[in-house]
Amino acid sequence: MMRVRTTLPGYLAAVAELPVSTSPTAESAGSLVVLPGRRGWTDAVARAAADGAAVVVVDEPGWAAVADLDALLRLDVPVVLSRSRLRADVADDARRTERAALVVGSCAAAPRVLAEVVRDAVGWIRTLGDAPVSAVSARGAEHGGIALLDVGGTPATLAVTALDPTARPRTRVTALGVERSDVETTPDGTTVTVSSESGARLLPARFEDAPRLALRRALAAGGAHADDVALFRADVVVADALVGGQGRLPAS
């Protein structure tokens, strides 16, 4: 049984739902420590590791510098990241059996969260393209722009739109090939549709709460590193190249 230290309500509920494998604790040493992903979360992970945490979960990781993520990769503690716009189980479901010939994405969000939405859109392009993503060029205007990307040799585009400050973020990524995969993400969840010559099918929805999924993944990580931070870092590098700290693409 793994002891879990957290004050986040969703994770406290998840611990109660997993009584055979988890139990609550106030101690970090030897425990699974859950941290909120607010600004400075990378420093909080480092402190938890120094306090002897066995594994760390970060809920909704926000902005982080690449140098700080590099420091996390050097820690001898598994770090699991819970990203609601890029859930690990939905990403596994959406992975394609054949390489795409083209990947087209779009995302829109309020300026204060646009960089994070772009980061997760890049993650979906990486997932559907099944390869690392790199930025080729970007052209921006006052309220958005478009970027040309490369996904392991496959061309991709990402259109970015800055919305009203109260608007809800949304993302759509389409991979085209023998089959077509469409991913749509909103605050209400993510849907994945796969189309072929035989028709279109909507993949079954995942109903497990994100905190419970994160805890199960952390328990499965055991003493080995999960690759969440490395993949997150890759998405951040591309998002920084596109929108940086300004939350918009460079003006043309």
Rank of each mutant, 00 (worst) to 15 (best):
M2I: 13
V4Y: 01
L12Q: 14
A16W: 07
T25L: 03
R38V: 10
R39K: 11
G40E: 03
T42A: 14
T42K: 02
D43W: 07
A44I: 03
R47A: 14
G62D: 01
V66W: 06
A67Q: 06
D68R: 11
A71T: 08
L72F: 06
R74K: 13
V79T: 01
V80P: 00
L81Q: 04
L81M: 01
R96L: 09
T97W: 10
R99K: 13
V103G: 02
C107M: 09
A115S: 15
A121D: 06
G123T: 05
D130V: 08
A131M: 07
A131N: 07
S137R: 14
E142I: 09
H143I: 10
L148W: 10
V151F: 06
G152T: 07
G152H: 05
P155R: 08
V160W: 01
L163H: 07
P165K: 09
T166L: 15
T166K: 13
T171Q: 15
T174H: 09
L176Y: 15
G177C: 09
E179C: 12
E179M: 11
E179D: 15
R180G: 07
V183I: 12
D188R: 15
T190V: 11
T190I: 09
S195W: 07
S198Y: 13
R201G: 08
L203I: 09
P204E: 02
A224I: 09
R233P: 07
R233F: 08
A251C: 10
